[in-house]
């Protein structure tokens, strides 16, 4: 049953979902690079993004303005991240303390539980689905849900915007400097605590964007971020922690491997193929495809 056409279609489908995986992974790796901590609540910001998308589409804008709702969801997640970081994470960093990244990481686990419980309290254990006005689209010979195509295109756009911000703006330059040497950035006059909050907010906003874009496909419920978190960290292991190209390539790779596995072997093991990939990468390059063995101070 192998045909070149089917292979191409599966590949395209894999790349399309891979872009969204990359978005999640990019958020994780970005926060790690700047704030030096693992944010385990990434999936919950994905969840937050999907809930905002649902509420805005269902109760305010309607399905024709789904794209505006996506922008609102992303901005909303950004804002929540920007406001939460100084309260929950900054106290660990503001004073010299040993193993502060560990404390910060534990705080994000608490945040994970809090946000999930909050979703249950507010929306109940129900599943929601925001509507979209997008018809089925043809990607080459392949029929695709419109929302899926739109999600990939929007994710690509977001990656482009992210790249521009990081490479072309003053904030991007300061963030890159901070990722390499926090103390030197500080003595250069960079307000590292403000940029911590900014980086955290940008990172979680990427997750929120993924949640908003995928809400019509993977639905909205309190634990929908769990899968997103797992995929995000799979990619981080594949690509290497702290590496932005690693997050992008790893995301695409995971999408393609899952898609091909589901298409040509068996779709019931779709989530297992990614872990096989992780094992393989770990055997060959334990620090990930683009990870560094050590970082230069």
């Amino acid at each position: 049953m192998f045909s070149a056409e089917l292979f191409t279609q599966t590949l395209i489908a894999g790349l399309m979902i891979g872009v969204l995986y990359a978005l999640m992974a990019l958020g994780i790796t970005f926060i790690y690079s700047i704030v030096r901590m693992i944010n385990w609540a990434m999936g919950e910001f994905y969840m937050l993004g999907s809930y905002i998308q649902y509420v805005v589409v269902a109760h305010a804008l309607g399905r024709d303005l789904w794209w505006l709702a996506v922008i609102i969801s992303t901005a909303g997640t950004f804002l929540v991240g920007y406001l939460l970081q100084p309260i929950l994470i900054k106290p660990m960093y503001a004073r010299a303390m040993e193993r502060r990244d560990d404390y910060a990481t534990v705080v994000t686990i608490a945040l994970l539980l809090m946000l999930r419980s909050l979703a249950v309290v507010i929306g109940g254990p129900n599943q929601f689905r925001p509507e979209t006005n997008l018809p089925v689209m043809w990607v080459g010979p392949l029929p695709m849900e419109g929302a899926r195509v739109a999600a990939s295109v929007c994710a690509l756009l977001a990656l482009g915007v992210f790249y521009l911000v990081i490479s072309r703006t003053w904030i991007g330059l300061a963030l890159r400097a901070m990722a390499q040497n926090r103390v030197a950035a500080q003595t250069s006059g960079v307000d590292v605590f403000r940029l911590d909050a900014m980086a955290f907010a940008i990172g979680v906003a990427l997750a929120g964007l993924a949640g908003a874009l995928l809400a019509p496909l993977f639905l909205v419920y309190p634990t929908n971020g769990a899968v997103a978190t797992v995929k995000g960290f799979e990619i981080i292991v594949i690509g290497g922690l702290g590496s932005i190209p690693g997050a992008l390539i790893g995301g695409l790779l995971l999408g393609v491997v899952e898609s091909l596995g589901a298409g040509f072997i068996s779709s019931s093991y779709q989530n297992a193929y990614g872990f096989l990939l992780v094992l393989l990468v770990l055997l060959v390059r334990p620090y990930g495809l683009f990870g560094e063995r050590g970082r230069e101070a």
């Binding site: 003053w170 330059l173 300061a174 890159r176 400097a177 390499q180 040497n181 103390v183 030197a184 950035a185 500080q186 003595t187 250069s188 006059g189 960079v190 307000d191 230069e296 101070a297």
Partner: peptide, 30 residues
């Protein structure tokens, strides 16, 4: 630093993965 008191370190702290030019831009714009 913003108030005009700036320091250097015994082991030079530069931003390794930025270019020499970018290294100079960081403090200026900060």
């Amino acid at each position: 630093a913003e108030r005009g008191l700036v320091r250097s370190f015994q082991v030079a702290r530069v931003f390794g993965n930025l270019t020499v030019h970018e290294n100079l831009m960081v403090p200026y714009f900060a």
